[in-house]
Each structure stands twice: as structure tokens, then as C-alpha cells.
Design a protein around this nucleic acid. Structure first.
Lengths: 146, 146
DNA sequence: TTACAATAGTTTCGTTTGAAACCATTTGCA
DNA sequence: TGCAAATGGTTTCAAACGAAACTATTGTAA
């Protein structure tokens, strides 16, 4: 006799995680889209370029830092460069590589969106108590180490 | 002078959550696809039909239980019915509604995949200690209540 | 009854996505 | 050297997705 023990989807962790993550991402993505004509992937590229603002990252480095694949990065960059939010040059010693830097426009977006993002995070954390917050980070460190 | 305080993506919770959830979902989805020619959405439909195996759910009820939108459910059902994994009749008193039940084939898939899913969950939880596990559920309850 | 609103579900259409193929350049090494 | 393999990045193609439009049926209320 076959075991029909049903899976309770609403208690299944990968499912719950996916629902939660999608809800949050969608809400944020929608806001960025409407207010700044900015996709989630584009925002991640901007965030990384702002964070590592030395003498310019390559597209590959951006892909690594954002955990996105190179196709997604390439497309995000195409739009960002077209909108003059990112400046793209070619690397001096290696003509394959591009050298990416935020433009003034890009920085302007960053300086508005970054605080907004932090607000989103705060609102999310506001629903947890101190211990839960500490644990959430610890759990993420264990499950998805950088 | 503008505030360039950069957002540290790798510490930003919505981002980390999205990375974690995507990694897990992708790994699982890939396995279901390869081994059973089954998409994530189709599996969710099967799981719900197995769980609420009374006198048949409607597509709308499936959409509610899976938190997917009706278009996704409609498409998943089209494939499942074509593969004879789900039986679809029309509701007696309401010709708009469909009445959905797992077929023998559908149950067979379920009885293999459900334990497999539980194994995935166990493997994920194995990386956490008892307290972290308890907390994870509590956090999810608070952040994404059913 | 009739007509208008609401509901169940599908189809359409434009967009997003990812894998694989691709081009150009650079690296490694026989 | 010179040639195959590796690397950076873009393009192509097919599948997946969501919003909105659509069909069919049922509910409601004058």
C-alpha cells in the first residue's frame, strides 16, 4: 500500500522561503520600477559599483559581487549605460574587459535608493524582536554563506 | 555634500533572502525537471491536490493554496492533464468550475517526490542547531503569515 | 425576464530569463 | 613563435512569466 502522506506545503521550508522572498522582492522591485525606472538587477549593479568605487569594476566582477549571471549583468549594464547612469570604458591593458563606474546620474540614484532600501529592511525587521533578528542573520550565515 | 554611504548588498536582508531562496529553489527545480519532467509549479499543484484530496478542488482553490496566480495554475494544469497526472471534470452545479483530482499516475509521482522534498528540507535543516530551527519557523511565521 | 456585475478559467501579448552559441582578445605552453 | 584553450562580454533562441483581454457561466436585483 503506497504511502500517500501528503506534503504540507505551507509548512515546507523551501516553499515558505520562496513565498517570503518573492513577496519582499516584488514589493521592492515594483517601487523601484515605478519611481526610478530601475529594475532589481540594475539596482544591484549600481549598489555594487557604489560600494567598490575604486578604479572601476569589470562586468565579471559585478556578476560575482551580485551573484547574478553574466547575461543578466550584461543586459542590466546595457540599460544603465544607455541611461547614462553608468560610464563604460575599455580596460587599458585588456581590450576584452570593460571598466565600469557610476556617473553623476548613477550616484544620484544610489543616494536616493540606498536609504530607501535600508528603510525597507528596517520595516521588515521591525516585526521581529531582538533575538529573532540576531538569529535571522545567524541562520542566513549558515544556510547561504558568502 | 551627498551621502554616498554605500549599501552593503551582502548584508542586506532582502537580498540575502532572495539569494538563499533562489539557490534552494533552483536546485530542487532542476532535480524535479530532470528526474520527473516536472516543473516547480506543477509539483505545487500536485502537492495541494494530494493534501486536499476530498471531492476535488477547483483551479481557483489550487491557486489560493499554492499562492500562485491563476494563469500559472492554468498552465500547470494544462500540462498535468495532458500528461494524465491530473483528472479534470466539470463541476456538476457550476459549469465554469473544474473538478481536479490526482490520477493514479499523479499519486505515483507524489509518493516519490514528497519524501524527496522532505529529504531536501532535512538536509537544509541539518546545518542548523535546534534553537536555530525553532527560530527559523518562528521568524517565517512572523514575516510571512499564512 | 432581462440586463449588469461578478466569477472561473483560458488565451494573448509583451517582457524577462537562462542556456548555449558566439565574437574578440588574451593566456598558456609545445 | 604560433596555436589551442581560456576568458570577457554580447547575442540568439526558446521557455517562463504576468498583466490584461477574453469566453463562458452564474449571481443579483430592478
Amino acid at each position: 500500500m503506497p504511502d500517500h502522506t501528503p506534503l504540507e506545503l505551507e509548512r515546507f521550508l523551501p516553499y515558505r522561503l520562496s513565498i517570503l522572498s518573492n513577496r519582499i522582492s516584488q514589493a521592492i522591485a515594483r517601487e523601484y520600477q515605478e519611481r526610478f525606472d530601475l529594475s532589481m538587477t540594475e539596482w544591484r549593479v549600481i549598489a555594487v559599483l557604489a560600494r567598490f568605487d575604486g578604479d572601476g569594476l569589470s562586468a565579471r566582477e559585478v556578476a560575482e559581487r551580485t551573484e547574478m549571471d553574466k547575461v543578466a549583468v550584461s543586459r542590466a549594464l546595457a540599460r544603465l549605460v544607455a541611461a547614462k547612469r553608468v560610464a563604460r570604458r575599455t580596460h587599458d591593458g585588456d581590450k576584452r574587459r570593460s571598466v565600469l563606474l557610476l556617473s553623476a546620474k548613477g550616484w544620484k540614484i544610489h543616494d536616493v535608493v540606498a536609504p530607501l532600501a535600508r528603510t525597507h529592511e528596517r520595516e521588515m525587521l521591525a516585526r521581529l524582536d531582538v533575538e529573532e533578528r540576531r538569529m535571522l542573520t545567524r541562520i542566513l550565515d549558515k544556510l547561504a554563506p558568502v
